[in-house]
Computed example of a mutant assay.
Amino acid sequence: MRSGARIEAFLEMMSAERGAANNTLSSYRRDLEDAAENIGDLAGAATESIRAYLGDIAGRGFAATSQARKLSVLRQFYKFLYAEGLRTDDPTGTLDSPKKDRPLPKIMSEAETGRLLDRAATEANDASTGYSAHIAARRMHALVEVLYATGLRVSELVSLPLTVALRDERFFIVRGKGDKDRMVPLSAKAREAMRSWLTEREKVPAFAESPFLFPAASESGHLPRQVFARDLKGLAARTGITAAKISPHVLRHAFASHLLQNGADLRAVQQLLGHADISTTQIYTHVLEERLMRLVNDHHPLADKTS
């Protein structure tokens, strides 16, 4: 029974016993026929032949997800041959699935972030707007200044206790994931924006007894994260920044990336972000690589200064 016939038998089984859709069967057929074309005797292939084939498709530029799909089809094919007594082993058993690349986080440039903060400050200081709009603008200014200064998760930001604004200190303790406390910095601009917001907050009777810095008439008692995300996109649009480009999480990424670009240590950024594992913070290694390239190009005596 040759490979082509065994592929047909496998596809018949997938259709009859597993109820695989026609599109799925067509996809399986393409993957198996491609493997057979490159390996030769697919049904009798050894592990090394399959490993070489996977290396070949990686070299052809297939994404990690496509490589993983092709390996998955081969695993099912050899599992079928084993169950049918057509093979006594599974040559894919010791093969590792290709690791999927983690997408790089969206970030804003320092110039864009500066424009966003300047716009928030301008709107917060505009006394010509109505009362409700002025309150919202002061709140937004405090939110974005604190977020960019600290890199807090949005859930940590909107639920900040009022006591944070009552102390004029450069650091405060925030409780993050897993109920773990960490110390985060607070810039002078962020403290000033919080004090201005606190002045406006005290004028709203409904907020007087709230223990939250950013109270709201919500189930949690504080500003919902969805409301902040929506208002942030509005601020971005008024700044001339595409709304789709920004979110509270993007500002958190900007905080981390800009620190690294300006010389911060990856371990320090890990602590500031509240990442339990350094591997989570390593999505920013591309920033470090760019910084190291600039360092070498700018300061190494053999660097090409004209490029």
Rank of each mutant, 00 (worst) to 15 (best):
S220M: 12
N297H: 14
R60C: 06
Q282N: 01
D31N: 02
R102A: 12
A43S: 15
G178R: 08
G130F: 01
V184K: 07
I135H: 03
L81S: 10
H222T: 01
A268R: 01
D298G: 12
R294V: 03
T242C: 14
M108E: 13
L160E: 05
V296N: 06
E8T: 13
G240K: 04
S210L: 08
E289Y: 07
N22S: 14
L259S: 03
G130Q: 00
S128E: 10
S257Q: 00
E192H: 09
V296K: 13
T239H: 05
R153W: 02
T113Q: 08
H141G: 00
H222I: 03
A20V: 06
Q261F: 02
I278V: 14
A244F: 08
R138Q: 10
R119V: 12
L157N: 07
R252Q: 04
A111C: 01
D118Y: 01
T280H: 05
I241K: 11
D34S: 12
A190T: 08
T199H: 10
A256T: 07
L232C: 03
S109R: 03
M14L: 15
V174I: 12
Q282P: 00
E290K: 14
R115H: 10
P224C: 03
N22M: 13
A124T: 00
M13N: 11
T199D: 11
P91W: 13
M14G: 10
M183I: 14
D90Y: 05
K100G: 15
G234P: 08
F207L: 00
L288A: 08
A21K: 15
S3D: 13
G151W: 00
L273P: 13
F172S: 09
L117T: 11
P301W: 11
Q67V: 06
Y131H: 08
R182K: 03
L213S: 06
I246E: 11
V287E: 05
H299I: 01
D277T: 04
R195A: 04
N22G: 15
H141E: 03
D96L: 15
M14Q: 14
Y53R: 14
K180G: 13
E17R: 08
S155Y: 00
R167T: 12
N297K: 09
N125M: 05
F207W: 00
T65F: 06
G59S: 08
I107W: 02
T306D: 02
G61C: 01
G93M: 14
P105H: 12
S97I: 02
G178K: 07
G114E: 15
A236I: 08
A206W: 00
L74D: 05
L292P: 07
E12S: 11
V158D: 05
